[in-house]
């Protein structure tokens, strides 16, 4: 079947840093190709679940102030992650609901009210060239996503024709609960290979202080400002692989959490790793926000991530059922 491409959005005004991201371009780190992908992959998946997409479908990652979008065609979207006071033709629309847009609708974001990054899923996904098995924008190398860069004014985003013709316009009456487990506000970590290089006092300092997200943080790394942790033994490390969530200790004693655009290898001490299930929490903190860590076991890290994925799959099924039910009713 030939699928028809439609124009979906025109960017009326550019935002600070809005890019197309999926869950990352894995499989080529052997060549130094950094995975990129959504900073908050959990929020992207929640948005995808709401519109009936595959969880790993590419969507838009928005930073405030976000772009202004003009709909060129009707479509079903959902927003998750940061609350940016989204307005549809001036009227507020909620996070975590499917919303059917009509042609010429104007979608804007008025204020950053909570969190830091907002994700928009579009039913059927966006049309992008999938270089290297992924739609993620690699800003450093300038490829993937929309022309390898952040969206700018007059960009037109395309998507395949979707099957949402029967849905009524506006906000659909169901939502999902973004909380998959009850936890504290702590960001959970597990020890890194050089954890033991910290004195027991420094380990306590890492766990007991309030770090502040530094303003130099970006999609590559989340820098933490606090009391410096200076290692007594400073043996240099030859470069080896690092991971999304790896906490490296820089020579000045400040920790940096490697995020989605991280380089594939590094040579600074890996004192700890943020667990996969809590990367979402960290990605929603903005410069100036406090962050506190909590040490957990490898098993807790693993089971928390598995629960998160199982929860998403469950939501995905429920949302698809709701959408198909609505199709039948009309």
């Amino acid at each position: 079947m030939n699928r028809v491409l439609h124009n979906r959005f025109t960017i009326e005004k550019a935002g600070l840093l809005d890019t197309i991201q999926d869950l990352g371009r894995y499989g080529q780190q052997r060549s130094g190709i950094n995975p990129c992908g959504a900073m908050d992959g959990y929020a992207l998946q929640l948005a995808n679940a709401l519109v009936g997409n595959l969880l790993e479908e590419a969507g838009l990652e928005l930073h405030f102030p976000a772009s202004v979008f003009r709909a060129e065609h009707s479509m079903l979207i959902a927003l998750a992650g940061a609350d940016m006071d989204a307005r549809l033709n001036g009227e507020p629309i909620p996070l975590l609901h499917p919303v059917k847009l009509k042609k010429n609708d104007l979608l804007q974001f008025a204020a950053l009210r909570s969190g830091y990054r907002c994700y928009m899923a579009i039913e059927g996904g966006l049309y992008v060239s999938e270089e290297g098995y992924s739609s993620s924008t690699n800003l450093k190398a300038g490829y993937g996503g929309h022309e390898g860069r952040a969206l700018k004014k007059a960009d037109v985003l395309k998507a395949y024709e979707s099957t949402d013709a029967f849905l009524p316009s506006g906000v659909l009456p169901w939502t999902v609960d973004p909380v998959f487990e009850t936890t504290t506000d702590h960001v959970r970590i597990i020890p890194g290979h050089e954890w033991e290089r910290l004195s027991s006092q420094q380990q306590q300092d890492l766990l007991q202080q309030n770090f502040i997200i530094d303003k130099r943080s970006d999609r590559m790394g989340c820098r933490l400002a606090g009391d410096p942790l200076i290692l007594s033994k400073s043996e240099e490390l030859v470069s080896s692989a690092v991971n999304f969530g790896t906490i490296q200790l820089l020579p000045d004693g400040s920790p940096i959490v490697l995020m989605a655009d991280h380089q594939t290898t590094g040579g600074y001490p890996r004192i700890a790793h943020v667990i996969k299930a809590d990367l979402s929490k960290l990605a929603q903190k903005k410069p100036g926000d406090p962050v506190r860590f909590k040490l957990v076991t490898q098993e807790e890290a693993e089971s928390s991530f598995i629960r998160q994925q199982e929860y998403l799959l469950q939501l995905s099924k429920v949302c698809r059922l709701k959408l198909s039910h609505l199709d039948h009713k009309l």
Binding site: N243, H273, K276
Partner: peptide, 11 residues
């Protein structure tokens, strides 16, 4: 050793 909760390093 584990490199986080989703990778292992052979050193």
């Amino acid at each position: 050793f584990p490199l986080g909760d989703s990778a292992i390093t052979i050193d």
